[in-house]
Amino acid sequence: MNAFIWLFDTVVQLFIYVLIASAVLSWLVAFNVVNVRNPIVAQIGEVLYRITEPVLRPIRNLLPNLGGIDISPIILILLLLFASRLLHEFVPTQTAVYTR
């Protein structure tokens, strides 16, 4: 069971990094720091959008209109960290005890 917990934690951490990268890229595009006409930037943006949007869309639908401020990545990060902590609380860790 420890391997499952490790895998879940690793996937959660990687997805949090992807969410942060997506948010930073959206800020850079909004402030015209990077140009979306650049093929590399457009490709990175498309990949990040396709990975994060299916998970963020239901959260955005539940939130009220905040006037252009999107807090759905923050809420999702908090939910992922909560799920990770919850898994650690309720799944007992096994220690290897060998008796002969």
Rank of each mutant, 00 (worst) to 15 (best):
I5N: 13
L80W: 02
L25P: 00
E46R: 15
L66Y: 12
T99D: 02
A3L: 13
Y49W: 15
A23I: 04
S84K: 01
V97F: 13
V36C: 04
F90G: 06
F90M: 04
R60G: 11
V36R: 09
Y49G: 14
P54M: 12
L78R: 09
L14G: 05
T52A: 15
S84P: 06
A21S: 15
L76R: 01
I20E: 05
L25H: 05
R85E: 13
I44R: 06
V18K: 03
I71F: 06
L56N: 01
R37W: 03
G67S: 04
S26F: 06
L81M: 12
L86Y: 12
G68L: 06
I75A: 02
T99K: 09
P58N: 03
R60K: 08
M1L: 14
V33R: 11
E53R: 02
F8Q: 07
A83W: 00
W6S: 14
L78K: 08
Q43C: 03
T95E: 09
I5C: 09
A96I: 15
I71Y: 11
L66T: 06
F82G: 10
L63Y: 05
V41E: 03
S22H: 15
T95A: 14
P92N: 12
V33H: 11
W27I: 12
P58Q: 03
Y17F: 14
Q94T: 15
V41A: 06
Y49F: 14
T99V: 08
S84G: 11
Y98F: 13
R37S: 13
V47W: 09
L62G: 11
L79T: 03
I5Y: 06
P58G: 01
I75K: 03
V34S: 01
V41T: 04
Y17V: 08
L81P: 00
I74N: 06
L28Q: 06
A83N: 02
R57S: 11
E89K: 14
W27L: 12
R57Q: 11
M1G: 09
N35S: 05
A21I: 10
I77T: 07
N61Y: 11
V11E: 03
N65H: 12
V41Q: 07
Q43W: 07
I20F: 14
V91I: 15
A42F: 09
P54K: 09
E89Y: 14
L76F: 02
L63G: 05
D9H: 14
N61I: 08
A83F: 11
F8M: 06
D9F: 10
L63V: 02
L87C: 09
I71S: 07
L81T: 08
E89D: 12
I16P: 01
P92I: 11
T99A: 09
I44F: 04
A30P: 04
N35Y: 08
V33P: 04
P64H: 03
L78Y: 01
T52K: 08
P58W: 00
L76K: 02
A42K: 10
P39T: 07
